[in-house]
Write a protein that binds this DNA or RNA. Structure first.
Length: 597
RNA sequence: GGCUCCUUAGCUCAACUGAAUAGAGCAUCUGACUACGGAUCAGAAGGUUGCAGGUUUGAAUCCUGCAGGAGUCACCA
């Protein structure tokens, strides 16, 4: 790559001219801004003090030295104040573009499956309600970061941890027994997760009524919440569950089965999947063993009432509960257990958890407790924290009915995609199945891109109306660009008989072509930077830059009417290269790109 | 209240490690379809990067203080 060559030569020149010791990696090259001529820029200010010369002089001397050493690569340089701009020869760019045309793996590294894996957990749903918009951000991030790390050559294992036990499940079960009349997904036509979610809401409704009537009779609110018959019954049910009561377990399995079927459908629609699924009902006991171990080691302590705690005040945090006084486990207990189990299962090089930022504190504690329990691999735990998704009218709250359901949203997007396609009337020749697949592809492209283009750590605002806009910085814009490029390449090959593998030889390129090639050239760098930052957003925004640069170039370049055969060949190869680049970056985001649309 | 994170154009978002005149899209306005796919492109307008200091040749970026917002500090998960 040319940037590495440049770095080496600059380091050498610094040494020769001013006896400045600088490692090649420490030399920062940036892309030259559009307003100035050149391709790569070196800021020389950091070296002027040691060189004891003016910035202009240092830049000129460095420029000459590097140009002389690399006369076949660097065609020219110019100096503006302390900025040294290098221009790269056309031949370097053209041969680069030719080389990646038709290389379907450009920008993607090969995975060594013997390497210790990166284990990434995402999704982690509760089995008492359907997936909503917040889960969508989680799932898309988790999937995309997996793809991103894979593209960077890492051996990735995707896992899901289903929270299938606890009081919340009992609430749904209880409400279903009481008010369900034996309703099933089949009899009601409801998706399993929606059906169970319905009874979770039902429980809450009746529970609140009970609290209210107790309070009307003069009971304090706190007291009423504890004494409401429904709550007591739910707790008894949890106890029966933990005791392995046959009747409760059977119902639990039946209702969870409905939910899993529903989730699978949603996951499939979103295009996400897992290598392994953990269930808390299978892992929570291990956490309890770890707590015992902590007590034996003396890093945890037991209060008089029997509850177990960890004192984290020396780390600047509070005391943290690890086991309730009745001996049942809490969230942290389970997480300790699953972390250990996962480490044992995979021998992971890194453990990534895609979990919302409301749990930043939880993960801080988790790492410290693991460390104190004597697990050195605690350092390998990385919490990929993401911000909440807000709606234009404020936060999502299940109570106020402002939750956006995942299935509804996807269906809504598909409908809009269909309308937009109808309006444009371009797909009259496609059969109904193809059209349906296309609408789905566009709907998900729009949704995924809209969510992934935002930096994960930031709170984002989801505006349903805007997300379905297929213009501007959106997924469909990139999908459309890709389809158009494929159309050009098809025509070139079948109508003009162009051989994509031929060598176009030496040709000169214009500014817009150069811009496109440079973007492609930097793609691998961007992929590794994005992987280091766990940021699909970088990929998304970069893809958009590339698509935009291509459209601008495309607009005023008559590719297939070009009279010079070599030049036409080169332009088609450039098109092909761009489509490969776009396709691979969209692959990282989990977005499908159509050959035609 | 303690701790953590956030605040960039009317709106939604960028800006990799500090670097040249802080960039896109949407919305608004002006232009380009006898055209390889117009779901496009070219252009205009829009900014004291929350406020006040500091460090630096250079700050949206680093430090301090303040204001505003979010999260968390549960025998919830």
């Amino acid at each position: 790559m040319i940037d590495i060559t440049l770095q080496n030569n600059i380091a050498q020149a610094l040494q020769n001219l001013y006896s400045i010791e600088a490692t090649p990696e420490s030399i920062v090259l940036q892309k030259t801004k559009k307003e100035f001529s050149g391709d790569y820029t070196l800021v020389v200010f950091p070296y002027v003090k040691q060189a004891r010369k003016s910035p202009e002089m240092v830049a000129n001397e460095l420029g000459s030295a590097v140009k002389n050493a690399l006369s076949d690569l660097i065609s020219d340089f110019n100096v503006i104040k302390g900025f040294l701009n290098f221009s790269v020869c056309d031949s370097y760019w053209t041969s680069f573009a030719t080389a990646i045309a038709n290389n379907p793996h450009y920008g993607l590294k090969t995975v060594d499956s013997n390497e210790a894996p990166v284990v990434i957990e995402y999704s982690s749903p509760n089995t008492n309600k359907p997936l909503h918009l917040g889960h969508i951000r989680n799932n898309l991030l988790g999937w995309s970061v997996s793809q991103l790390l894979t593209a960077n050559g890492r051996n990735v294992k995707k896992v899901n941890l289903v929270n299938d036990r606890g009081i919340h499940i009992c609430k749904s079960m209880l409400a279903w027994l009481r008010y369900g009349n034996g309703e099933t997904p089949e009899s009601s036509g409801l998706k399993g997760d929606h059906l169970v979610g319905k009874y979770y809401v039902e429980f809450d409704k009746h529970y609140k009524e009970e609290i209210k009537s107790l309070m009307d009779r003069g009971v304090e609110e706190e007291q009423a919440k504890k004494e409401a018959p429904l709550m007591i019954e739910a707790q008894q049910m949890l106890k029966r569950w933990e005791d392995g009561d046959k009747e409760v377990r059977e119902l639990w399995e039946k209702m969870n089965g409905w939910v899993y079927a529903g989730f699978d459908e949603t996951y499939k629609k979103m295009g996400v999947g897992f290598d392994k699924i953990y269930y808390e009902s299978n892992t929570y006991l291990l956490g309890k063993e770890l707590v015992q171990r902590g007590l034996d080691l003396g890093v945890l302590y037991r209060k008089e009432d029997g509850s177990v705690w960890c004192d984290l005040t020396d780390a600047g945090l509070d005391h943290k509960l690890l086991l309730r006084k009745d001996g049942t486990s809490v969230y942290m207990t389970q997480d300790l257990g699953t972390a250990l189990l996962r480490q044992k299962d995979f021998g992971a090089d890194q453990l990534i958890y895609v979990v919302g930022n409301e749990q930043d504190y939880h993960f801080q504690v988790l790492k410290i407790v693991l460390k104190r329990l004597g697990f050195d691999w605690a350092d390998k735990v990385y919490h990929l924290s993401y911000g909440m998704v807000e709606l234009p009218n404020g936060k999502m709250k299940s109570r106020e009915g402002t939750v956006v359901d995942a299935d509804d949203l996807i269906e809504e997007m598909e409908k809009t995609a269909e309308e937009m396609c109808r309006d444009r009337g371009k797909n009259d020749d496609m059969d109904p199945d193809q059209l349906k697949a296309l609408y789905h592809m566009l709907a998900l492209g729009a949704l995924k891109y809209f969510i992934l283009k935002v930096d994960p750590s930031k709170t984002m605002l989801f505006n349903p109306a805007e997300s379905i806009d297929f213009n501007g910085n959106t997924g469909p814009f990139i999908q459309y660009t890709h389809a158009r490029i494929r159309s050009i390449v098809r025509k070139a090959v079948y109508e003009k008989g162009i051989d994509l593998h031929a060598n176009p030889g030496n040709i000169t390129i214009n500014e817009k072509e150069r811009e496109v090639i440079k973007l492609l050239h930097d793609m691998s760098t961007v992929v590794s930077q994005a992987a280091a930052a766990y940021s699909p957003a970088m990929i998304a925004n970069y893809s958009y830059d590339l698509a935009k640069a291509f459209n601008s170039f495309y607009q005023d370049t008559p590719i297939l009417r070009e009279t010079d055969n070599n030049r036409m060949l080169f332009l088609v190869q450039l098109c092909d290269a761009v489509s490969v680049g776009l396709k691979n970056m969209m692959w990282i985001l989990g977005i499908d790109v159509p050959e035609r649309m």
